[in-house]
Amino acid sequence: MKAFFNDIKKVFVENKKMAMCGALLTLTLVVYFISWHFTIITFGSIYSVLDVGDLFIRRANYYLLESFLFASAACIVMITVRKPLIKRIFIGLFLAVFAVSEIIRMVDWGALYFMGNHIDSNFWAHAFYADGLVFLIAKESLALYVTVGLFFAAVHRILKKMYLISNAEN
């Protein structure tokens, strides 16, 4: 048992960077998911986060699990897959899914903040006519773009780092 733990310790010390990248990716995703709800409740609703405590905690738990699964999947692919091309495809897919999620969250955040409701059939009815998405040209929406850009850059950077580390190790 002791030998096993020593082994694990040794593996950790030797791959500290990869492990830290994994943890960083997990934390980034956690912050990305949870801050969406935190900010919309704080800035866009008549409630405080404490008012919706139970619901918020339940959602946070879900996001913790989701972030763990996504980040772990990324780490495992980087560690186990040998071919750089497959890794790059995986990173591309990961980033594409993340970007779709970001766009949805950006528009939905704006819909909730500016129109008081989620994207719904009324939203779709107006979506591509000016008023459905008119908030996207509001000055306040700059904050949405900046946030989305920052998160995307962070995830991209972490994945790239993991890719480089894993390639160097291989």
């Binding site: 694990i8 593996v11 950790f12 791959n15 990869m18 492990a19 830290m20 994994g22 943890a23 960083l24 990716l25 997990t26 934390l27 956690v30 913790l64 699990l65 972030s67 763990f68 980040a71 772990s72 780490c75 495992i76 560690i79 186990t80």
Partner: peptide, 13 residues
């Protein structure tokens, strides 16, 4: 290594 990374991710969560 995968086990270590999963543990670290879990700890981060």
């Amino acid at each position: 290594l995968a086990l270590v990374v999963i543990c670290i991710n879990c700890a981060a969560c």
